[in-house]
Amino acid sequence: MQEIVFATNNQHKLEEIRRIVGDKFRILSLSDIGCHEEIPETASTLSGNALLKARYVKRHYGYDCFADDTGLMVDALGGAPGVYSARFAGPAHDSAANMELLLRRMDGAVNRSARFVTVIALLLDGEEHLFEGKVEGEILSAPQGTAGFGYDPVFKPAESPVSFACMSADDKNAISHRGRATALLLDYLSKL
Rank of each mutant, 00 (worst) to 15 (best):
Y151W: 06
G179E: 02
A89L: 06
T118K: 05
E100Y: 01
R178V: 09
A96C: 06
A7W: 04
V110K: 14
L101I: 01
D107H: 13
F25N: 03
Y151T: 09
L46M: 02
L185F: 00
K24Q: 15
L52Q: 12
E16H: 15
Q144M: 03
R55D: 15
V5I: 12
A142Q: 07
G108Q: 11
F116R: 04
G62M: 06
P153Q: 09
A142K: 02
Y63E: 06
N173T: 03
P143V: 02
R112C: 12
C35D: 14
F25R: 06
A183C: 10
T42Y: 10
R59Y: 07
A97F: 08
D75T: 09
N10Y: 08
L72F: 01
T8Y: 08
I4Q: 03
E15H: 07
E38C: 07
I139T: 14
V5L: 07
E136D: 12
I27K: 07
Y63W: 11
G62W: 10
F66V: 03
G71F: 08
D171F: 00
A158R: 11
V154F: 03
A80Q: 13
G62T: 08
L140W: 06
F155E: 11
R18E: 13
R105S: 15
E37P: 05
T45C: 07
G179N: 03
F6I: 14
E3C: 06
I120F: 09
E38A: 11
A43G: 15
T70R: 05
L184V: 13
T146D: 08
M167P: 01
E100D: 14
P153A: 11
R26Y: 02
Y56C: 08
Y188L: 07
L122P: 09
E128T: 15
D125R: 08
I27T: 13
I175R: 01
P143C: 00
C35G: 09
F149H: 08
D94F: 10
P143H: 00
G82W: 07
L189C: 13
S160D: 01
A174D: 04
L122M: 07
A92I: 03
F131M: 00
V154T: 05
R19G: 05
A54V: 14
E127F: 07
E136I: 05
E16T: 14
D94Q: 15
G82E: 12
A80K: 08
V154Q: 09
D107T: 12
L101A: 09
G48H: 02
V154C: 06
L124Q: 15
F116N: 01
